[in-house]
């Protein structure tokens, strides 16, 4: 059993640390997630177009990129970029290094989602576009992509929520995001159990809000895609 003293101490620590940790989340975790998600999706998008272009060098480049970044651990990618690159003269600050690593990683995974979404649009849509004399590029831009984006919303929403959690890896390169902040406080208060539960709780808060937004977005778009 815990003594009353201990309980009071823990409650004190938790209430003192709640806002600093939340703030680290709002200042670093959320921006890092949003920035890398947007950049990652753009990268994924161009990779998918390159892959579907049929132009050999672009196809090869797209495949190579995805192969590397899906086939190696994110943590290793982050370490190479932050701890490895200085030895070849490229030194990055922690935050930009995290943005680059997460973007490249998100891009490779979202690419699969976007490519699958494009391929999921029925052939009849391409044919209808062709029947009104659209070129391939016009059909892609006006008919296929707008629907593919809608198809991608649920799986991209899932990777977005994973990304929120994955950004905790940025702690390993000293970005003071949510997890790093929790770690700092845990190491001076000697209450790792309660602090990490608090950290988990704040992540849960973030992902619950985001899941809610995701399902609203999905409901809004799910009917305007050819089945």
């Amino acid at each position: 059993m815990m003594t009353d003293d201990r309980t009071h101490r823990i409650i004190g620590i938790l209430s003192d640390s709640f806002f600093p940790i939340l703030k680290a989340g709002l200042y670093y975790t959320i921006p890092l997630t949003l920035i890398t998600f947007v950049l990652g999706i753009l990268l994924a998008f161009f990779t998918a177009i390159a892959r579907l272009s049929g132009f050999r060098p672009l196809v090869a480049l797209a495949k190579f990129y995805v192969w590397i970044f899906r086939g190696t651990p994110l943590l290793v990618q982050i370490f190479i970029l932050f701890y490895g690159f200085p030895s070849i003269g490229i030194t990055l600050d922690p935050f930009p290094a995290a943005v680059i690593a997460f973007t490249l990683n998100t891009g490779a995974y979202s690419y699969e989602i976007i490519r699958a979404a494009i391929l999921s649009i029925p052939k009849g849509q391409w044919e209808a576009a062709a029947s009104i004399s659209m070129t391939k590029a016009q059909a892609m831009r006006r008919i296929i992509l707008p629907q593919a984006i809608r198809v991608s919303i649920p799986p991209l929403g899932n990777s977005f929520i994973s990304l929120v959690k994955d950004t905790s890896l940025a702690a390993t390169i000293t970005v003071t995001e949510l997890f790093q902040k929790g770690q700092e406080i845990a190491s001076v208060t000697y209450e790792p159990l309660w602090l990490y539960i608090e950290v988990a709780f704040i992540y849960l808060l973030f992902s619950t809000v985001l899941s809610f937004l995701q399902s609203r977005l999905e409901r809004r778009y799910d009917r305007s895609v050819a089945k």
């Binding site: 009849g124 849509q125 044919e127 209808a128 576009a129 062709a130 029947s131 009104i132 004399s133 070129t135 008919i143 707008p146 629907q147 809608r150 009917r223 305007s224 895609v225 050819a226």
Partner: peptide, 19 residues
């Protein structure tokens, strides 16, 4: 595309643009 501009097509499954 030049030939297609001369023809219009109506499909069995309509193939309207759902968005």
């Amino acid at each position: 595309e030049r030939v297609r501009k001369q023809t219009g097509m109506v499909f069995q499954s309509y193939n309207l643009f759902p968005h």
